[in-house]
Amino acid sequence: MKTWYLIVLGLLAAHLSYAQKADIGELDFIINVNDVTELPQSEILKTFKNGRSLWDSNQKVIIVLPAKNSSLASDVAKNLYNTSVSGMQKFWLALVFQGRSSPPVFLQSAKDIVEYVENNPGAIAAIPAGSIEIPSNLKLSIK
């Protein structure tokens, strides 16, 4: 009986210690959508969680994120998705496999991400705050 208590307590302790903490303020957002320079936090979060397929301008929403082996990925996964890099990848792969989303674009560096957003109308990206200087016309502020 004592062994069972120890097993259950051990599982609970491991379970409680396994927790992520999200903070959207730790991220910079980049966008290339006509007339959109700021969005409410809830709208940003919803967009990054497949809550929107088209912008008001009818452009397709293209989510751009750091690739899994990018040094930027863990901060974005933690602060935006409240999970690990693997968890973030699984979240998107599952949605794509369900047929409920197009796949995001995963890129290696902050520079690649900024360039991709700049060249692809409808794109929105998240990177850790201060990773790179973001052109003012692409910067998305939290309303």
Binding site: G51, S53, L54, D56
Partner: peptide
């Protein structure tokens, strides 16, 4: 097992034709 074409005619609404 699946073969479909999905037309996303407005934000978050789609028409799908095919095997699902």
């Amino acid at each position: 097992e699946r073969s479909l074409v999905k037309y996303n005619y407005t934000n978050n609404h789609s028409v799908i034709v095919g095997k699902v």
